[in-house]
């Protein structure tokens, strides 16, 4: 099963990648774990691939001030195993550790995952819940885009043609609690439903909450209604039931397929919200 023909170019630098990636029909190639499966099935036939995988400037994970900066080329396995990510963005380490299988995690990158924005992906949901920011670089210069403004629709982001994600910046979780709970498709391991919660708790009561859902929805989506149902409560069973109901009612656009129809995913979103809260409060 071969992809159709394409030119292959290896980027020598970030600037070179942007220049090559700006030409018509060009696509960046990072870990290839979304792109190559699509090319093999000929769902996508780019004229040229610009391989960015050897660009050291896009690698590495570091802590600066009160945030953790993850290079676009950091693999799921590197993120899952990083002491810095485990400390400052534990829900992201956990989500990356649940992506696909070990071989997928060795090759797939955070930048490629966010750029591709497969609705069944895990990292977009978590980056959104954690209030992450994407650092982008293109022929028009550099910009920083909040996750809220980055994911636009099914497989659609705010990236301009030829623009690269260079890094993802996640504010440190501090004293807040967080967790990602996922229902994995039994064959592909992609998310059927994934819910990430970030909770601030003081004096036994939830004072602040952020709830993001993916898998079930065309793009990673924040639910203010679910978060509001948690705030002010002691996160007891009644509050979790109310939040689960609020979440299911709040999702305007839920996808369905032969494996998991729309009403099932809608119901599971509530169930996985409860699981995420319980895991966060563990």
């Amino acid at each position: 099963m071969y992809p159709s023909n394409f030119d292959y170019q290896r980027a020598a630098s970030v600037a070179d990648a942007i220049q090559k990636g700006s030409s018509d029909g060009a696509k960046f190639l990072a870990g290839g774990h979304s792109l190559l499966p699509a090319l093999k099935l000929r769902l996508n036939e780019p004229e040229s691939l610009v391989d960015i995988a050897r660009l050291d400037a896009l690698k590495g994970i570091s802590v600066t001030g009160s945030s953790v900066r993850i290079g676009a080329l950091a693999t799921h396995a590197q993120i899952a195993g990083s002491a810095d990510v485990k400390k400052h963005a534990p829900a992201l380490a956990s989500a990356c550790g649940q992506v696909g299988d070990p071989a997928v995690r060795n090759r797939g990158t955070l930048g490629g995952n966010l750029a591709h924005t497969d609705p069944a992906s895990d990292p977009p949901t978590v980056v959104l819940a954690l209030g992450g920011k994407l650092h982008l670089q293109g022929s028009g210069g550099n910009r920083v885009v909040a996750a809220e403004d980055f994911f636009l629709d099914l497989f659609t982001t705010d990236l301009h043609p030829g623009e690269l994600i260079t890094a993802v910046e996640i504010p440190s979780i501090g004293q807040a609690k967080s967790a990602y709970a996922k229902m994995a498709h039994p064959a592909s391991r992609y998310a059927v439903v994934g819910v990430c919660v970030v909770l601030e708790v003081s004096g036994g009561k939830c004072s602040k909450a952020r709830v993001a859902v993916g898998g079930a929805t065309p793009k990673a989506t924040l639910s203010a209604a679910a978060a509001n149902a948690l705030v002010g409560s002691s996160l007891d069973t009644a509050a979790l039931d109310a939040a689960a109901q609020a979440l299911s009612a709040d999702l305007s656009d839920v996808m369905g397929d032969v494996y998991a129809p729309e009403d099932y995913r809608r119901a599971m979103a509530g169930v996985y919200l409860k699981r995420a809260v319980r895991a966060a409060m563990g």
């Binding site: 190639l29 190559l36 391989d51 071989a103 060795n106 090759r107």
Partner: peptide, 18 residues
């Protein structure tokens, strides 16, 4: 599955040029 540079990879999801 094979090992590439000491890591487990799916050789059907990697180009020879990579």
């Amino acid at each position: 599955n094979v090992h590439l540079n000491g890591q487990l990879v799916k050789s059907c999801t990697c180009l020879a040029v990579q």
